[in-house]
Nucleic acid binder design. Structure first.
Lengths: 327, 327
DNA sequence: CTGTTAGCGCGTTCAC
DNA sequence: GTGAACGCGCTAACAG
């Protein structure tokens, strides 16, 4: 593979001249430029990006770290990040934490391979984050609580979202409301649950333990939890699923048991995934401002890269999307 | 930011000793190792990944290049790529071509920033690909035709898919079948169309030009094309949409015009997106083996990286998913 | 067996 | 337009 050296030799000029010519510097005469470009083309020269990054000590790229590249869930968020990123001339790469401590994500965080990172990923341990956080390396954490001087938190107000969803059910006359949680270690799910509990208690309703089911944010998990709920007998009149995927599974479980949604039981989800609009009945849910979160995160990185000080904490509000799954 | 030099100074040893210690070489005594590690920890030392990549002239990472990181469409494919990648100890990063010639994707392709790449992205021009293709740099092109010695093609058989979909409609008694295409420059859409035409002509049906509509692979495009189809009067009895997104838009258009699917008109899509199962009626469609394509692509890269010669061309078959949108 | 010196890899940039 | 230092870590060869 040809290097800048080969090009210089072929063009009969110094290495630095080639570098200037390729970067279109004004220091170089038109004639030399052409000569160099021609030599580069002949040799099919391609520069080594690392070498220049190394020299410049900046990469001009931002990493977006997700639990799983394959998840369609992050689409909106990614869009927000991506648009701001491109508009500002930065490169964006997405990588996943699949693979544990050897994962690509960790490598990018700890090895100075990017200028900044946005993390929405609970597989990345606090330790790794703390270890990576440093001055001059903007690190934005989405939906996660962690106190560190070099880290900025952007959170969607899951408490408010959970509270709002529950309140909505209560306003529609529901008194017995079940909650299907996400994984136990999910900060998001826990906050939604707290919001739920707050709404329950402020309205002087009682929280039966049998109306708390643990799910795992998957469709199957929601299906299973709902089956158990049904098997317990004595249905609640409303169910709040900590995310839409589980609600979709729940709808299926109810249908299989000839329980009509929303006539027999009202349900509400969380996330407003694309599917929510198409379930039968269409799912009432809580929309998270994902695009906004992504765009905000990226803006915060850019601001920090340009030397500004930003607040360490941002909270975004959710919005209730009324459809047909609540009576 | 601390470099290896600082660590050496603090630990009171040579730079190379630090390097050996950090890479856990046997050349170094346990005591020195501990001393070095301790110094590294104190300084919060983090190595510069580029510097080592530069030296090793390999990055151990593979790029997956997509038109748009935000598209949920590629989820399955990504999964296939990702799993194989991780299982083999390679890193995977995803990047998008948004941003044209300055895009991250182009940068990764041309600047030796990765050891190999998988491209499913028609925004990347043939020129760029040809320019990037080189010996020792495995480049897999998905759903794209391009003849080049250093490039491997993996294609889903869109002709067969289009043929099969049309044949299916014909077998169900449909004679007047419309085709809603994707963007004109889409290789996929064109091949599906060719399959459609072949099925039509082999069954001695006639192809009316008014039953060819141009769409753009979006839901809105499908909606619009369908509205026009309806406005023309004299509906076809079957419609083959070149992708599911458009079919979803089509269903909506039919519903708004009180045309019942599948009673009044049968429709069939292409892709088997997650949504297809949830439309009303559930959409009959052609499933592409996306996971398999991704896994295959990644395998081909690994094989090439280990020095094997692989075939330059692979074709995967589609599968028809019967649901309820065809009578 | 431990640790050091020296040079590499490749492009950038400053002083001349 | 050029020479040479530089950025940072890796590693072969060599000295202690």
């Amino acid at each position: 593979m040809a290097t800048i050296k080969d090009v210089a030799k072929l063009a009969g000029v110094a290495i630095s001249t080639v570098s200037y010519a390729l970067n279109d510097s004004t220091k170089i005469s038109q004639a030399t430029k052409i000569k160099v470009l021609e030599a580069a083309r002949q040799l099919n020269y391609q520069k080594n990006g690392f070498a220049s990054d190394l020299k410049r000590t900046k990469t001009n790229t931002i990493a977006l770290i997700l639990s799983d590249l394959a998840g369609p869930f992050y689409s909106e968020l990614t869009k927000g990040v991506q648009e701001v990123c491109i508009a500002n001339g930065y490169d964006l790469i997405a990588c996943s934490s699949q693979g544990g401590a050897q994962s690509t994500a960790v490598k990018f965080l700890t090895e100075k391979r990017v200028d900044g990172a946005i993390i929405l990923d609970h597989n990345i341990s606090d330790d790794i984050i703390i270890q990576s956080a440093r001055k001059g390396f903007p690190l934005i954490l989405l939906d996660r609580a962690l106190k560190n001087d070099h880290v900025v938190l952007v959170e969607v107000d899951n408490f408010q979202g959970g509270y709002g969803a529950t309140e909505y059910l209560i306003q529609h006359g529901h008194k017995d409301i079940a909650f299907i949680s996400g994984p136990l270690n999910s900060h998001d799910s826990n906050m939604r649950h707290k919001g739920y509990l707050a709404a329950i208690s402020e309205n002087h309703l009682i929280q039966h333990s049998k109306w708390y089911m643990q799910g795992d944010f998957t469709r199957d998990g929601g299906y299973l939890a709902t089956k158990i709920l049904i098997a317990q007998g004595n249905l609640p009149s409303g169910v709040f699923y900590a995310n839409d995927e589980m609600a979709v599974g729940g709808i299926q479980a109810f249908r299989e048991n000839k329980i009509n949604v929303p006539k027999d039981v009202s349900i509400i989800g969380y996330d407003d995934i694309q599917l929510a609009e198409f379930t039968t009945p269409p799912l009432t849910t809580v929309r998270q401002p994902k695009y906004e979160a992504g765009a905000l995160a990226m803006h915060l990185i850019l601001q920090q890269l340009s030397g500004q000080i930003v607040n360490p904490y941002y909270k975004l509000s959710t919005e209730l999307i009324e459809r047909k799954s609540v009576k």
